[in-house]
């Protein structure tokens, strides 16, 4: 805790600097797209939040596996502390996607594979958080929530490959494709800066939330001691 505490001001500062750079590059330097016009700028907040929504759930699933197999309490705490950040990022990805879809596709929402599986991810996050909140004993809550995270992770490859397996209104992959990205450099750079900014943001808030959870558990055990007299 002391080590991560020393890192924290630096992490927060790096987040702020990367966000400022990404916003400057995305809103002022990058040109409008020849087909999408200025709406292409929505990409610089849409793609990072969509990426994080899945990366965070992957992290939670991994941490949950570690918690179940080796019973490491910090893994449990990391998974629990990640969930609200992931849920927020999923909500942001859905909202910014809708605001991009209306001008470019002519509709805020369609029930196609990509959009529906992302909505499902949002509900899995909510269910995971509700499960933690519903069970008082952190050990039992952690076990149930870890199983839910592992089961829910089945949705991750479905989201990722949804644009290839089914006909969707959402575009296919355009960054990590063979033969290099189909997005031009001036659009790609602010997107990667923002992905970096969002990732450091996640770790900053994650450490805050993990500290809080560790303190909350100490409070719980002290109160139990007091109740026992």
């Amino acid at each position: 805790m002391r080590v991560s505490g020393a890192f924290l001001p630096w992490l927060a500062a790096i987040t702020a600097a990367l966000l400022a750079w990404g916003l400057y590059d995305g809103l002022l330097v990058a040109p409008p797209d020849y087909q999408q016009g200025e709406t292409v700028r929505i990409m610089y907040v849409h793609v990072p939040s969509a990426y994080l929504s899945m990366m965070i759930f992957g992290t939670m699933a991994f941490a949950s596996a570690v918690a179940l197999i080796w019973r490491h309490p910090v893994a449990d705490i990391a998974a629990k502390a990640s969930a609200p950040i992931g849920a927020g990022m999923t909500a942001a990805a859905l909202a910014t996607g809708m605001l991009w879809g209306q001008p470019m596709w002519g509709t805020f929402w369609v029930w196609d594979a990509r959009l529906t599986s992302m909505l499902l991810l949002f509900f899995i996050y909510l269910g995971y958080m509700a499960l933690w909140a519903a069970i008082d004993d952190p050990e039992r809550a952690g076990k149930a929530a870890a199983i839910l995270a592992l089961v829910g992770s089945v949705n991750l490859p479905i989201i990722h490959f949804s644009v290839e397996w089914w006909n969707t209104l959402h575009q296919g992959p355009s960054v990590l494709v063979s033969g290099g990205s189909t997005i031009e450099g001036p659009f790609l750079r602010p997107m990667f800066i923002m992905i970096g900014a969002y990732t450091v943001f996640y770790f900053t808030v994650l450490i805050w939330r993990m500290h809080q959870e560790i303190i909350a558990r100490r409070i719980r055990s002290l109160r139990l001691l007091q109740a026992q007299g």
Partner: peptide
């Protein structure tokens, strides 16, 4: 569309 996306 652009500004609400950033605001959200």
């Amino acid at each position: 569309f652009v500004w609400p996306a950033y605001a959200f």
